[in-house]
Simulated scan of single mutants.
Amino acid sequence: MLDLARLRALHAVAVHGSVGAAATALGYTPSAVSQQIAKLERETRTTLLERHGRGVVLTDAARQLAGTAEQLLALVEQAETTLEERRGRPSGRLLVAAFASAARGLLPPVLAELAARHQDLDTRLVEVDPHQSVDLVARGVIDLAVTHDWDIAPLPAPDGIERTPIGDDPSEIAVTAGHPLTARAAQRPGGALDRADLAGERWICQPPGSVCHDWLIRTLRASGHEPDLAYQVAEYQTQLALVAAGLGIALVPRLGRGPLPDNVVMLPLEPVPVRRLYAVWRPTTARRPAITETVRALRTHATSLTTPLPTPPPTPPPAP
């Protein structure tokens, strides 16, 4: 008899590509995942993982068994969904994925509320890039994901997922307090910059391959300017530290921004760049009270956290 937990471990390694990444997704240690795979090898009398450099690769037999494991896990999920629905309350384990700024700025109060209200629900969190999380949900590795898109890069909607918007995350331009753009914004009605004002600036942005990076390049090129991407770092707090050092400007979403350095100010931009936030799950789990309750909590907290700051009043003209 094959052990389901060991099959789950093998399936996670097949999806994530390494024992370490599988352990992170499952909430185990790498050694615990390795032990599960070793026991499964003894049970099946089959080599499942082979060393390749510093990592491992699945054998042909392991890939076949991982495919079977995916089918079995889907059946188990259907049974668990039916039981939870009959109980009528959130329960069991729920694995949630979120991109970095959502994991920092949105999920803590959501997870705390769920833990306080639903003692039978074991909610886990793993940080995953937005372009990966939708696929992981579709493949049954993650139960629910918080992801985002921009107007120029809509979120893909492959077969096997459902989604709902949970909020909008407006972005603003981070500059030092004495930057020329600050004075320029103060002279505009509403205190907002437009995209033509950004020409010739040195930018601090996320690395290539991220949605935010692609948005910045496409938007500036569409306004007739080739962006000067001087510093490319993933964390927004690092971007703000570079802005504070006077090394450039950055486009920073409100969500997960955290406290600003003392000499950094945020300037509104028109039209306002907005990330749309979504919750994504599989149709087979849509009836789970755990899913519906988590989506409710996400929407409630996202609305309060991402409401745009009031636009500063225009600076009055100097007295004659």
Rank of each mutant, 00 (worst) to 15 (best):
A241M: 15
T47S: 15
L309F: 06
E226W: 14
Q36N: 05
H225F: 09
D159C: 08
L111C: 03
H301Q: 15
G246V: 11
V137R: 03
A302H: 01
A103M: 13
L73T: 02
A297N: 04
V274Q: 01
I152C: 12
L267Q: 00
R282I: 01
S223I: 15
E201I: 02
P180E: 03
R257S: 07
E293F: 11
P90M: 06
V96Q: 02
G167V: 06
G224K: 13
D214E: 04
W150E: 03
G27S: 03
L247V: 09
A69I: 02
P189L: 09
A177L: 05
A174D: 07
D262R: 14
L111E: 01
V264W: 04
I204W: 00
D149S: 09
G258D: 05
E80K: 09
Y28Q: 03
T29Q: 03
L251C: 08
T315R: 08
K39P: 11
T303H: 14
A157F: 10
A222N: 04
P156H: 07
A174P: 11
L58Q: 03
E80A: 11
A25H: 01
W215C: 03
E162A: 12
A38M: 11
G190C: 04
S101P: 15
I166N: 00
P308K: 00
T47F: 14
R93G: 02
H131R: 12
D3G: 01
T44G: 12
T47L: 15
A23H: 07
R163P: 10
